[in-house]
């Protein structure tokens, strides 16, 4: 069975969860898995297909989360509009950041560290001003109803998250089969070569980071609607950045279903560890770290590659 077939089956199976699972706990668990799968897909668009490893994807998640929270709480804007504005603004921030960084052809470790530094600056700044909730965070007032993008029934949130994940996989498949995706992969494999063939590397990467930022911001918006709370540590802290790259890398970088498989594997194991160790703080992250190390050593193409056929867009498969 190829990685794509396995991923599709998994995705289809996950659609059944809200109709089968009765426990509130497990529904929330799978909801979270889907959210991280989509966050990982957003990382994958830039990191997997674009080859730009971000260590600060929390910046974009937090941009969406705080953007929509601030607009709703401080300015009384409707949840849908606030979310749309937050996503658009974050995409613009991503494009601007990308332009600044890619203009100087910074990549590899430089790019990773700059994104991390930006996320840290955002975290400290957000925690410093009353307007952005300060150290306490932002609480979106409870007002159940579809008009406010707040649903009593968590299953509706679940179905929205599932739709997002399915959409994310479609975006990835589109990248694998479209002109833009081919250009992006070409830039990843050989920037000079791609440029010689007429691809504008800066423009290509800026578009990729804008798309990636918009996707991550969407998760942030969704997170706020679901939990009605966010603070600077959750939104911009290193945990979210690590989560984003971890699910993509463990699942399979640059593959359409890698982030989904990674999110399921990672959180299933994390939850198992929690059940066994009795929820010791930090221990599930220790496990994630060990998994990352082991995956890089033994499965450098991710869990997807465990399903036989080498994924089409894996590094080295495309010669630019």
């Amino acid at each position: 069975m190829s990685g794509k077939a396995a991923g599709s089956v998994l995705l289809a199976a996950l659609l059944a969860v809200p109709f089968v699972v009765q426990s509130e706990f497990w529904l929330s668990f799978w909801l979270l898995v889907l959210m991280f799968a989509f966050l990982g897909q957003s990382w994958n668009v830039l990191g997997g297909y674009g080859g730009q490893f971000s260590f600060g994807h929390a910046l974009f998640f937090g941009g969406g989360a705080f953007g929509t929270a601030i607009l709703q709480v401080r300015h009384g804007i409707n949840a849908y509009l606030a979310g749309a504005i937050a996503i658009t603004l974050t995409a613009m921030v991503g494009a601007l950041l990308g332009y600044l960084v890619f203009r100087y052809r910074l990549r590899g470790a430089y790019f990773a560290l700059v994104t991390l530094a930006f996320a840290e600056v955002a975290r400290v700044l957000i925690a410093s001003f009353e307007y952005t909730g300060g150290g306490f965070g932002m609480l979106v007032p409870l007002a159940r109803g579809a008009a406010n993008f707040q649903f009593d029934d968590r299953r509706i949130f679940y179905l929205i998250a599932w739709t997002l994940v399915a959409g994310g996989c479609l975006i990835a498949l589109w990248l694998e089969n479209s002109r833009f995706g081919a250009q992006l992969i070409a830039v990843r494999e050989n920037e000079d070569g791609a440029q010689a063939l007429g691809v504008d590397p800066v423009r290509t990467k800026v578009l990729a980071i804008a798309l990636s930022a918009a996707m991550a911001a969407t998760v942030g918006v969704f997170y706020v609607q679901n939990f009605l709370f966010v603070d600077s540590q959750i939104a911009f802290g290193p945990g979210m950045s690590i989560e984003a790259l971890l699910v993509a890398i463990i699942g399979g970088v640059g593959t359409a279903f890698g982030p989904l498989i990674g999110a399921v594997v990672l959180h299933a194991l994390g939850e198992l560890a929690k059940q066994i160790t009795g929820n010791a703080p930090g221990l599930n992250l220790v496990l994630y770290g060990l998994l990352l190390i082991a995956a890089l050593r033994f499965l450098p193409s991710g869990f997807v590659s465990a399903f036989g056929r080498r994924p089409k867009a894996s590094p080295g498969a495309v010669d630019a």
Partner: peptide, 30 residues
């Protein structure tokens, strides 16, 4: 730990040391 994960790609080293950092930090926290 680090050398075997290299596979000739520098990003791998960055990631494997990130993995180490996650493990060490959270073990300490625990």
């Amino acid at each position: 730990v680090i050398q075997p994960a290299w596979h000739g790609r520098d990003e791998n080293v960055l990631l494997v040391t990130l993995g180490l950092a996650i493990v060490i930090d959270n073990l300490a926290l625990w």
